Amino acid sequence: MIIDSHQHFWKYEAVKHSWIDEDMKVIRRDFLPEDLAKVYQQNNIDGCVAVQADQTLEETDFLLDLASKNNFIKGIVGWVDLRGNDIETVLKKYSKFDKLKGFRHVVQGEADHNFLLRPDFLRGISALEKHNFTYDILVFPHQLLAVLEFVKRFPNQKFVIDHIAKPYIKDGFFEGWAVLMQEIAKQENVFCKVSGIITEADYKTWTEAQFQKYLEVVFTAFGTDRILFGSDWPVCLVAGNYTQVKELVTNFISKYSKKEQANIMGLNAVKFYNL
């Protein structure tokens, strides 16, 4: 069973999706379940986790609606204002939805390097565990020091780092990212998504060889039981196609046992998100 642990849906709106810049204009259109179902059929994918792409409760409700109508959407990662004074009430309301597995905040877009450590945000995170909600960590490498301190504060909270923390592959930066990822991986409640990496390289000239040392770091650090395959569709389309993204991972993990490969490609996502 192959589960894509990270993809997005949207009805494109220029203002709402202003992060889709000129270089990414190929994805300035709607991407909905009927589009993805065809891609999954071609690539033998059994299901997915849909992740928020907009920071509103309407986005969470939009994904819940899609999940209720499309069985291959096995879980969703929504958004709530974790800094809000009403966080307990909001989480209680959303805990009624089986397919809502966790939440994410676009921390990479926050100017404060230590955003994760703000008291109001920490208060929101501390409320997740009670409702068995996961938290996806979306950051850039310069925010990893804060991530390390952050995950240590919540040893029982399930965390997953999106897109291997977006190392600057295009620029060849490596050492600082690698050291911190190895340190973070010592916290056994933290998982890692191998997703969104082709868009961290040069969109047009990337090669599979460029990613090897980055993949070696995360697979050695997190092990085959805490790594999740994800495509980051449709964002991945700015730098390649779905098959290329999948093969980048399947080629790398071909050296592992069949059981380990099955874990990486699907079973770890089932375990982490309780699908």
Rank of each mutant, 00 (worst) to 15 (best):
H6F: 15
K11A: 13
A14F: 11
K16H: 00
D21C: 06
E22K: 15
V26D: 09
I27Y: 06
R29I: 03
P33S: 08
K38E: 15
K38L: 15
Y40F: 15
N44T: 05
D46K: 04
V49D: 10
V51F: 02
A53C: 10
A67Q: 07
S68C: 11
W79D: 01
V80G: 12
R83Y: 00
K92L: 02
Y94T: 04
S95G: 04
S95W: 01
D98L: 15
K99R: 12
K99S: 07
K99V: 07
K99W: 09
L100M: 08
K101A: 02
Q108F: 02
E110L: 08
D120Y: 03
L128R: 06
H131T: 10
F133L: 00
D136L: 04
I137F: 04
L138A: 10
P141A: 00
H142A: 09
H142F: 15
R153P: 05
F154A: 14
D171R: 13
E175A: 11
L180S: 00
E183V: 02
Q187L: 07
E188H: 12
E188V: 06
N189D: 13
C192D: 08
C192M: 07
K193P: 04
V194F: 11
G196D: 01
E200N: 02
A209I: 09
A221L: 05
T224M: 00
R226D: 00
D232K: 09
P234A: 03
P234T: 02
V235S: 10
C236R: 01
G240F: 13
G240R: 10
T243P: 04
F252Q: 07
I253D: 02
S257R: 04
Q261W: 01
A262C: 14
L267E: 15
L267Q: 15
V270A: 13
K271L: 00
K271S: 00
F272K: 02
